[in-house]
Amino acid sequence: MPSSPSSPSSPSSSSSVESVAAVLRSAGCVFAEDEARLILSQARTPRELTVLVDRRVAGLPLELVLGWAEFRGLRILVEPGVFVPRRRTEFLVEQALAQAPEASVVVDLCCGTGAVGTALATALGDAELHAADIDPAAVRCARRNVAGVGGRVHAGDLFAALPPGLRGRVDILAANVPYVPTDEVGLLPAEARDHEPLVALDGGTDGLDVLRRVAAQAPHWLAPGGCLLIETSEAQAPTAVEAFTRAGLTTRLAVSEEWYAHVVIGTRR
């Protein structure tokens, strides 16, 4: 295992960027220079810099080393044992805002850190935000993130967690459900497999178990014209579209080649 860089006189010096990047590169970090700059910006002292670099070299995800992840220009707090928001999911947020630019009630289901809901509420300005997750660690983390936009976080299994008064009122229902097939969870990168909760990754035999549950119940919660958005994979997209359509939603698939993102969008008729 590579050694940590020698303690620099200033954690933000250009020479430190080069030395930290060299250590990270030796440890297999693909974007070593970018990660080095982020770690240096977080370190307040040379000793803290050494600790942060050691954690990254040991395999801790960068977001857990920093304590935050960037998502749509926001710093989203990330705590151990919570699903780290992916940058490609910004595409889901963009699609939601394009579909319902005047949304006043937003639900972030399977919220994890609450990144999607926080980003939506920030963009919309004064929307009523509710987030929910079955994982207590995610609920605690999300509460810290949505507090700044006046959001509420509920603990429980999908719609059972939500206040009954939301039925028929939701303009945007964003559900970042787990969609990795059970047999493929073990093939995930170690950063996800070893540090993120299985409940946030494992989507069942074909990866779509939770998606089907959400799609089936969504029409009861959506306002007229309200939309459900769920990210999925390219291979799963046709089956996911079928599940939305079977639930009675007007459905389309949005694809971003840049982010390699696939979002199924269903609108209540």
Rank of each mutant, 00 (worst) to 15 (best):
M1N: 12
P5Y: 08
S7D: 03
P11Q: 05
P11T: 01
S19E: 05
V23N: 03
A32M: 09
A43Y: 08
A43M: 10
R44H: 14
T50R: 11
V51N: 10
L52D: 00
V53N: 02
L60H: 03
P61H: 03
L62Q: 04
A69Q: 13
R75G: 06
I76N: 06
P80T: 07
F83S: 10
R88Y: 03
F91S: 08
L92V: 11
E94L: 10
L97W: 07
A98P: 02
A100F: 05
P101W: 11
P101I: 08
V105L: 05
V107L: 04
V107N: 01
D108W: 10
V116T: 08
V116G: 11
T118W: 08
L120T: 00
A121P: 06
T122V: 03
G125T: 06
A127T: 01
H130D: 00
A138M: 02
R140A: 15
V146E: 01
A147K: 13
V149T: 00
G151M: 02
R152P: 07
G156Q: 06
P163Q: 07
G165P: 05
G165H: 07
L166C: 12
V170D: 01
V177Y: 02
P178V: 00
L188P: 10
V199L: 15
R213F: 06
A215K: 01
A216P: 00
Q217W: 09
A223C: 10
P224A: 02
G225T: 01
L228Y: 00
E231H: 15
T232Y: 04
A235N: 08
A235K: 14
L249G: 10
A254G: 06
A254N: 09
V255S: 03
E257Y: 12
V263E: 01
V263M: 09
I265T: 01
G266Q: 01
R269Y: 12
